[in-house]
């Protein structure tokens, strides 16, 4: 009721207010003009509550949901990327271990083959050397026999030559046994 009295006393201001549209600024400082307070509060309440309802019921859940959805999408994409990377790493590790195994196997096969060939070639060389050694011994034996024979011939030739030389020089046929002994002595001495 007190406010009603205030409104009545503010009638002048209200009257000035009604003149405003035609006469422009009608005296007094508008922000302190009490006659406009009720209208402003009334419409502010409606506008503010309407905005609050729109914001809290529709706008914020929607925008918040958007931000949430983006965060989820990014997290999911990052997770997918990580999973794919892990899988790729796994593949790479498998590939590398298989490669290492294959390489080891290849080396083993190579080493085995080399050893086998080595043994084979060693055996072949051995048999060849044995055969050659046998042939060499045989040849040496032949050579020794031949030399023996040759040496025998040399003695006979030397004795004959010595007997001939003695006969030419002395005119007397040398005794066979003495010449023979002399040649033997000379051969030995030489």
């Amino acid at each position: 009721m007190a406010s009603q009295g205030k409104a009545a006393s503010g009638g002048n201001a209200g009257a000035a207010h009604t003149e405003v549209p035609s006469g422009g600024h009608g005296g007094g400082f508008p922000p302190f003009d009490k006659s406009t307070f009720a209208s402003q509060l009334f419409w502010l309440a409606i506008a503010f509550v309407a905005l609050y309802v729109i914001v809290s019921r529709i706008a914020l859940p929607r925008v918040g949901g958007l931000i949430e959805a983006r965060r989820d999408t990014i997290a999911k994409d990052l997770g997918d990327a990580q999973r794919l990377k892990d899988a790729a790493d796994q593949e790479l590790a498998t590939y590398e271990s298989e490669l290492a195994a294959a390489r080891a196997k290849a080396q083993a096969i190579g080493a085995e083959m080399r050893d086998k060939l080595q043994a084979q070639s060693d055996a072949e060389r051995k048999s060849l050397e044995d055969r050659l050694a046998g042939k060499l011994a045989e040849a040496e034996k032949t050579i020794a026999a031949t030399r023996q024979a040759a040496m025998g011939n040399v003695r006979t030739i030397a004795a004959d030559a010595a007997a001939a030389i003695v006969q030419r020089l002395t005119g007397v046929a040398a005794e066979g046994g003495a010449v023979q002994a002399a040649v033997d002595a000379a051969i030995k001495g030489a």
């Binding site: 409104a7 405003v20 009608g26 003009d33 006659s35 209208s39 502010l44 506008a47």
Partner: peptide, 27 residues
């Protein structure tokens, strides 16, 4: 800063409730 009345809606407790330029800007 002048508040201009556009139309009057009614009265609450002896106070005039008017739709004004301020109300229009609020909406």
């Amino acid at each position: 800063f002048q508040i201009n009345k556009i139309f009057t809606v009614g009265h609450i407790g002896g106070h005039e409730i008017a739709f004004t330029n301020s109300s229009a800007f609020m909406f």
